[in-house]
Design a binder for these strands. Structure first.
Lengths: 247, 247
DNA sequence: ATAAATCCACAACATATGTGAATGTTCTGA
DNA sequence: TCAGAACATTCACATATGTTGTGGATTTAT
């Protein structure tokens, strides 16, 4: 299903770009003039596949999507999680070929931005280019933190770290109320993000529940003591590069 | 020690940027006009630390450097390896604060590019900006492959994969002769890159030697049968985004 | 050339996490 | 409302990898 983008959607995009700082009013107007289309995508569906040379960049407006690769033995490894407001694949505007796939985890609303539009923006609007580049660098910082976590944190700390990160990321887009948020992932999805087995994710969650670090019920996560969970996993939010501006 | 950059060094930079494609002769001339300084750095020394707001971007001309974070229990996790021709920290041109550290692994020669220079380039030279952005996206692709490897590959395959990646990356900068290259890393360094223990790296290397997958002696790695090693770890080079041009 | 410092090699043992399988629970759609 | 699917939970057991420690080999500095 395709519909034309509403002002609210454009705002999501502008807010995203503004968090890099440095956008002028003219830049904002340029973005508003873009003729963007919105699309509804069901859960567990690929947006682009490894090897593709897609014609559109996607921005998530609602729902969760992920970046993943499939390993030899059929194991799926999730390398990034996209929450509302995140770009899925700015890559394709610059690199030729996708080296990984992108799929929805839940039903999503996404904006499609033609590659040519990005190319045009980067040729003529340095501030917007700067903002887009900024977005990819923050994505990279998150990716790096995931790598460090998988390489060096034990399963419980790693899991806690993901929950802390999600809390902050969802807070900045207004999707967390206080100390809780909807986390509509399967334990299987979590396993693929954490580099663990579903069985072990289940074990870890049980332990965390027993320690009262989390309350997780019907896909809703509540963190009774945020400071305690952060301390538990040694969480440091610097890698999210949240500016004062963006909350 | 500081010296002014020689033409050969500028060439390294220009070659790097050109691999993204799209540079005009005017762009190249712009790069040649930059007044860059070169620096010798001993092994195992930090170039920038987490929390810094450095004034220079670094480019490695010779030697190996790495991007790392230190975890609670003092464990160092290496998130990226920089070989000659690689940028260390384009981040600092865009993001405010370093969320990780950068250190040399071996003695290095690095070029220092002032932040202001990058800012100027990105404001006035869209093709160069595009090339720089391209470089960060390739870095991100490599980082993603490392994440996927640590999350989903067993130690031997993971190690083999690193060796294959290094072979290609060093080939493109002329630092591999055929099927071998100098790999001046400690087993400790390897462990930090692979998310393993030094002891286990030692075990894995022994096995790989016994299987004749590698010949590793006095910090020099030879791969008797490259195709066999690639098959062993299911190596797919697409994530390196090497263009025909750049090789 | 020699000593000191790293680094490599190997062994015995500990444990976090993976595997396979059975059962119960919660969604989902007709 | 029901049946079927998808998901969560738990168990027993297997194994890859971590931990601690010791001795020998290289490298580095004097």
């Amino acid at each position: 299903m395709l519909t034309s983008a509403s002002p609210a959607m454009i705002d999501t995009l502008i807010r995203k770009l503004s968090s890099a700082g440095g956008l002028t009013e003219a830049d904002r107007e340029t973005v508003r003039q873009l003729n963007l289309r919105t699309q509804q995508v069901p859960a567990r569906q690929d947006l682009t596949c490894e090897g593709d040379r897609p014609e559109n960049v996607h921005l998530v407006l609602s729902g969760f999507a992920c970046r993943y690769k499939v390993l030899p033995r059929g194991r799926r490894s999730i390398a990034a999680l996209m929450v509302p407001g995140d770009f899925c694949d700015l890559h394709v505007a610059i690199l030729d070929e996708m080296d990984h796939s992108i799929a929805t985890l839940t039903p999503c609303t996404v904006v499609e931005i033609p590659r040519s539009t990005i190319r045009d923006l980067t040729k003529n609007h340095p501030h917007i280019t700067h903002a887009l580049w900024w977005a990819t660098l923050v994505d990279e910082a998150v990716l790096r933190e995931w790598l460090v976590g998988i390489a060096g944190r034990e399963a419980p700390e790693r899991t806690a770290h993901l929950f802390c990160e999600l809390l902050l990321r969802l807070q900045t887009v207004g999707l967390a109320e206080g100390d809780g948020y909807a986390m509509p992932f399967t334990q299987n999805d979590l396993a693929d993000m954490l580099g663990l087995t579903p069985v072990h994710v289940n074990r870890v969650l049980r332990e965390m529940r027993l320690d009262n670090l989390i309350v997780l019920k019907r896909r809703y996560l509540r963190i009774p003591d945020v400071a305690r969970l952060c301390a538990f996993c040694d969480f440091n939010a610097n890698y999210l590069h949240r500016t004062p501006r963006s909350k």
